[in-house]
Structures are given as structure tokens and as C-alpha cells.
């Protein structure tokens, strides 16, 4: 097909970054929870979906998108903390497959409950008025809302980094991830730390779901597609590494985008091809610690 200009390639790269931003936002929560709690959260997609429905519900009650941006992560995070406190907490120290099975089952329950409450068919979720339309970014037109998503992702990353690196609570979290026993000996209630980490992880998932809603509408099954892609991102980035998730998320976005340009039929497969190559060369992923899964 003709028309392969430099502008198009630049725009395509940009589209890849924007797509990558959504992967990053979804995967950092997953990675955070795994890195700190060694819980493979299979319900992450369901929390993402719940975030979108929570936003929808707030809109139905007469709220607006800007209220959702604050209220949705709070509500989903709170829900996540309840799940950690009453379900996942009982399974610590029993090996990695127990919480995995629990969250896997939980995701089914959550999807089914949403189906009961909101019905099986999807809902439209309009882009907020302020962010509608496309703007010229120099190499072509790009939807304003997607630019906003990139910005929101950057803000979440910055906030998370500041929290983990610059606050004393962040220090405790990092210490707890490295050696929970020593932290406990030093008199810190580690279970509260884990509670909050799980809450933050799920809050980010809910936030990602809310941001995705204007892009694709809202449907109970919306979490399952992105979950598969997000696991690729976390595996490529290294299980548990937030920096790895960021790098891998953007890389996956760009790989999808560039393969869409030259061989659109291959776009979906290209993600998994990338994962296979990375796993052959570097089994623990970009920044993963070897042996974390064992």
C-alpha cells in the first residue's frame, strides 16, 4: 500500500506510545501487587471493569467525568482493600497458587455480579466534552482524549514514584517487599502495608478502566482482553518490576502499532512473539529478579 511517509511513521509511533500508556497503567498495578505481595492478581481485569462501571454509575447519578477521576480510584481501591483484608490475607504463606486461584474465581464472580446489576449488554460512555475531537500534533491529527490518557498515566507514574521513593511509608513498603520478616521484627505491622499496597494496585486498575471507558465503551467482559496483554507486559518487563512494566508497556504498544502499519493481521500475534523472544533471551524479563516465582 502506498503512502508510507515519515509523518505517517511518526504518527504511528505516537499511536503506539498512546496505546502503550494504557498497557502501562493497567500493568503497573498488577506489577506492584506481585512485586510486594507475590500475589498474581487474576482479578485485576475485573477491578479494571469495575472501575469503568463505577464511573458509569457516577455519571448516571448526575456526576461528571472529573468527579469520576477522583471517586473511581477511591471506590475501587477501597473495594480492593476489603478483598485483601477478608479474602486474600488468609492465604499468605501458602504458596503462589492459592491467591492466584482465589483471584481467578473472584474475577468470575465480579463479572457475573456486574452482569446481574447492569445487564449483559454494553453501555456507551461518552468522551467528556472538553476532551472531544482531534488535534494536530505536528505530524497529523490525534484524538485529544488519548493525549489526556498519556498525561494521566504520566501523572500516576510520577505520583507512585514519589510515594514509593520519597515518603517513609514508601520506604516501609520497599523494605517489606525485600524482607517482610525483618520489617516485622522492627515493629512494623506488615499486614497493614500489604493492605494498602493492594488498595493502591486495584485503585490504579479502576482508574485505568475508567480511562478506557470512553475509548471502547463499557461491557462486563472488558477486563479479560487487556488482562492477557497486561500479563505479557509484566512478564516482558520482569514480574514485579514497576520500571520494567513501564518500559515493556510502551514497547508492546509500539510493537503493536508498527506491526499494524506493515502487517495488520500480525498485530495481535506480534505481542506474543515479542514475549517469546524476550523469554528466550532473558527469562526473568527486563528488570525481573530471578527466582521470584519459586
Amino acid at each position: 500500500m502506498a503512502g508510507l511517509s515519515l509523518d505517517l511513521i511518526a504518527l504511528q509511533l505516537f499511536a503506539g506510545l498512546a496505546l502503550g500508556a494504557i498497557y502501562v497503567l493497567f500493568a503497573i498495578g498488577l506489577s506492584l501487587i506481585f512485586g510486594m505481595l507475590t500475589v498474581v492478581n487474576f482479578a485485576h481485569g475485573a477491578f479494571y471493569m469495575v472501575g469503568a462501571y463505577a464511573g458509569l454509575y457516577i455519571l448516571m447519578l448526575g456526576g461528571n467525568f472529573w468527579i469520576c477521576l477522583l471517586a473511581v480510584p477511591l471506590a475501587v481501591g477501597l473495594f480492593g482493600m476489603l478483598v485483601e483484608r477478608f479474602l486474600i490475607r488468609r492465604l499468605y504463606g501458602r504458596g503462589i497458587d492459592y491467591p492466584l486461584l482465589l483471584t481467578f474465581g473472584l474475577s468470575y464472580v465480579m463479572v457475573e455480579l456486574v452482569r446481574l446489576a447492569f445487564g449483559k449488554t454494553g453501555y456507551p460512555f461518552d468522551t467528556p466534552d472538553l476532551l472531544q475531537g482531534a488535534v494536530n500534533i505536528g505530524v497529523g491529527y490525534f484524538p485529544l482524549y488519548r493525549l489526556f490518557v498519556i498525561g494521566a498515566t504520566a501523572a500516576v507514574l510520577l505520583g507512585l514514584w514519589l510515594f514509593l521513593e520519597k515518603t517513609s511509608f514508601g520506604l516501609i513498603i520497599r523494605a517489606g517487599a525485600r524482607d517482610p520478616q525483618i520489617v516485622r521484627v522492627l515493629g512494623v505491622d506488615i499486614s497493614n502495608v500489604w493492605l494498602i499496597v493492594f488498595g493502591i494496585g486495584t485503585a490504579i486498575a479502576g482508574f485505568a478502566g475508567l480511562l478506557a471507558a470512553p475509548l471502547q465503551g463499557v461491557i462486563p467482559e472488558m477486563g479479560s482482553t487487556i488482562l492477557a496483554e497486561a500479563f505479557v507486559v509484566t512478564v516482558v518487563g520482569g514480574m514485579g518490576s514497576i520500571g520494567g512494566a513501564v518500559l515493556a508497556g510502551l514497547l508492546v504498544g509500539i510493537v503493536v502499532s508498527m506491526s499494524s502499519l506493515f502487517a495488520p493481521e500480525m498485530a495481535k500475534v506480534s505481542i506474543f512473539a515479542l514475549m517469546a523472544i524476550v523469554l528466550i533471551v532473558r527469562p526473568q524479563g527486563f528488570f525481573g529478579r530471578a527466582g521470584l516465582m519459586s
Binding site: 503512502g3 504511528q12 499511536a15 496505546l19 497529523g140 484524538p143 503493536v256 495488520p264
Partner: peptide
Amino acid sequence: TDFSTLLPRILA
């Protein structure tokens, strides 16, 4: 679920 990577080419 995401067509954003196909649309720039169509625009072009």
C-alpha cells in the same frame, strides 16, 4: 478492542 494503530494509516 483498539483501532488506534490502524486509523493513522487510513487517515493518510
